[in-house]
Amino acid sequence: MLHVLALSAMLSGFWLINSGHYTPLLLFFMVVSVLFVVTLCHLMDVVDGESQPLNLTFTIPFYYLWLIKEVVVSNIAVARSVWLGVDSISPNVVTVTAHQKTDLGKVIYANSITLTPGTVSIDLQGDQITVHALTRETAASLLEGEMDRRVCRVEG
């Protein structure tokens, strides 16, 4: 039941942020829409701890802010490498260890690597993620483990 309430709150917040209008008619439509979607999801038995992980609700927004900063910094680094030419690019394939406790945490980590320009997660086997990095510096910063530590904090 807690997952249903969390899903309802998330959908309502998403509606309110995207709508920007708070007239009684639109708020009524929001309530009807959210009730319809939550009821449908509940009947389909897709509202559970995996689809709506409550432990991430309060920690992941801060991680997203940090990840956005990393994406911007990486974009600048990749653009710099492109402008400097072939000599500035030194492709590497490295293996990093994921210290997350859950599969969801490992997936968040691997996807975060891929979202960051200049790196792509190639394979995830157990606790090992194989990553292609555009430069040695990118590979070295990934091996430092800051992203891994932050995803572990998100997991709790």
Rank of each mutant, 00 (worst) to 15 (best):
F29D: 10
D45N: 14
P24C: 09
V32C: 12
I113A: 00
L16E: 08
P24E: 10
V78H: 02
I76E: 06
D45Q: 14
Y22K: 03
L16D: 00
F36G: 14
D45E: 12
V154A: 02
L84H: 01
T39C: 10
V107T: 14
W66P: 01
E146K: 15
S8L: 08
P24K: 00
R136Q: 14
E50P: 04
Y22S: 06
R153M: 14
N55M: 13
D148L: 05
T39L: 12
V72I: 15
W15P: 07
T130S: 07
L115Q: 05
L26E: 11
D127R: 04
H21F: 13
G118V: 13
E146M: 12
G145M: 03
I113E: 02
N18D: 03
D127H: 00
S51E: 04
L67P: 00
T102S: 11
V37C: 09
N18E: 09
F29P: 08
H3N: 14
L40S: 10
L43S: 12
I113M: 02
D148T: 06
V37D: 06
I108W: 01
D48S: 10
L25H: 14
G20E: 02
I17Y: 05
V4F: 12
M147F: 00
P117E: 10
V46S: 08
D45S: 11
S33H: 09
V4N: 12
T59Y: 01
L143D: 12
T59N: 08
N92F: 08
A139N: 07
L134Q: 02
W15D: 11
V82N: 04
Y22A: 11
V37T: 12
Y22R: 03
D48C: 14
I76K: 13
L40E: 07
A79K: 01
G156A: 11
Q125G: 04
S90R: 12
S33W: 02
L26P: 04
V78C: 07
V82W: 05
V154L: 03
M1G: 13
S74F: 06
K106N: 03
V96S: 05
Q100H: 00
N75G: 15
V93L: 14
D48Q: 05
R149C: 05
A77V: 06
F58A: 11
A110T: 00
S112F: 01
V86W: 08
R80Q: 15
V46W: 02
G105N: 05
N111E: 02
S112Q: 01
L124Y: 02
C41A: 15
S12E: 10
S141H: 15
D87C: 09
V32S: 12
A9L: 15
G105M: 00
G105S: 03
D127K: 10
L142F: 02
L26A: 06
S8D: 07
W83C: 13
V47L: 14
R149V: 07
